[in-house]
Simulated assay, not measured.
Amino acid sequence: MSAKHANLLAWLPLATALLLSGCGGGSGGVTVVDTTPPAPPGSNWQWQLPSYFPTPKVPEDNPMSVEKVDLGRFLFYDRRLSGNGTMACASCHQQALAFTDGRAQAIGSTGEMHPRSAQHLANIAYSPTLTWANKSVTSLEQQFPVPVFGSNPVEMGINDANKLEVLQRIKDLPLYQAKFAAAFPGNADAISWPHITKAVASFQRSLISANSRYDQALQGKTTLSEQEQRGQRLFFGEKAECFHCHGSFNFNDQVVHANTRVLEIPFHNTGLYNIGGTGAFPAPNRGLFELSGEASDMGRFRAPSLRNVAKTAPYMHDGSIPSLEAVLDFYAAGGRNIVSGPHAGDGRQHPNKSALVAQINLSEQDKADIVAFLRTLTDEEFLTSPRHADPFPK
């Protein structure tokens, strides 16, 4: 086994390793325990995590609190937090869809289409980089201004001309006057953009998804069907090789937590495009290349977490693959060959394609089994929990 494979396998949750070795399930399953260290002075927040979930990393200048998460939930769902008052964070991140929007490409408050799809927010607390292809955005606090104040494309539509007006909308509401005072006690001017940023980031960190049927099977609370178990063995095995990019407890390969010592942030070219055989991807969706200008970065995007993946169609950074079945066909083929149109080209032959993406001999039954396993990653509690839901009356 290569060092790369060993490193990826090291991310497998202990419970998965037990299942793969035939030691899991039944009364020997993994129990849910609170593994959180004692809360710092003044904090009232406690993570409730399975034993195989590490404690999330939280910025020292933005510790978690019940009041801050509560405030962040209101702000996340409030359309007043956009330039024209028509759009909330939740407009592109809907709870029932695992905090995606079901579109191939997101649409901003002014109707401008985003070149990429909205990513889901489940377990976003564990993501060391945010957005599809930017190594420099490394915290939720850094990411917040991108959709809120960005102009290319316009998303929330707040800018220098209207940001004071938008802030005043929030200041004028007694609801927020009380909630900001509770979340940021001792601040004479508690309602501010920095505090809005910290509150929304805190709410996003609270979006923990860890109670899917897969998790329940790890804990001995249920048993996966024979088909789902076959799919699990394929997913974590060398035949399908899905685990190389999706093998952590969060089913991706970029993970940071409170005890991280060595951080890896891989990005991958999966052979989605190869326009005219030149190696090109459609602008402005060219991965890390958009920022680095390095030819080797063409088409390199981060691998998203597969938790709740059955709810997050369509797939890929541009929503160009419509279903899980089509995703399995794509990876089994070792990339995508587009035979006509402006994007025609054989992605399977892309010179920068990841060595982890190669043709795989999967039968139709194999692919159906893997899809069945992927559907066990849906966390119905997460998708319906009042803790994460819209707090405003309909």
Rank of each mutant, 00 (worst) to 15 (best):
P37T: 09
K68Q: 13
V69I: 12
G108L: 00
R80C: 06
A106Y: 02
G42T: 05
L12R: 10
G83K: 00
T16N: 11
G72N: 03
P56W: 00
Q94T: 11
T16M: 14
G29S: 11
Q46S: 15
G26C: 11
E67V: 08
R103S: 14
G29L: 01
K68S: 10
P54E: 04
V30N: 14
F76P: 02
R73E: 05
G102I: 05
D34W: 10
L14P: 10
A104T: 08
A88N: 05
R80V: 05
C92S: 09
K68L: 11
L49I: 09
Q46I: 12
G22S: 08
D78I: 06
S27A: 15
L81I: 09
R79Q: 15
L97F: 03
P40Y: 07
M64R: 03
D70P: 07
D78L: 07
F74C: 11
F53W: 04
R79E: 14
Y77I: 11
F53G: 01
W45H: 06
C89Q: 04
E60I: 11
A96T: 13
S43L: 07
Q48H: 14
S51L: 12
T35H: 10
D101V: 08
W45L: 07
D101Q: 06
D61T: 13
W45G: 03
G102N: 02
G24L: 01
V58S: 06
V32Q: 15
A98G: 07
P13K: 03
S91W: 02
R103V: 08
F74L: 12
P37K: 10
D61L: 09
T16P: 06
S65P: 04
T55W: 01
Y52N: 11
A88F: 01
A17T: 14
H93A: 09
N44I: 08
L18S: 12
C23G: 10
L75E: 03
G72R: 01
D61W: 06
V58F: 06
L81E: 02
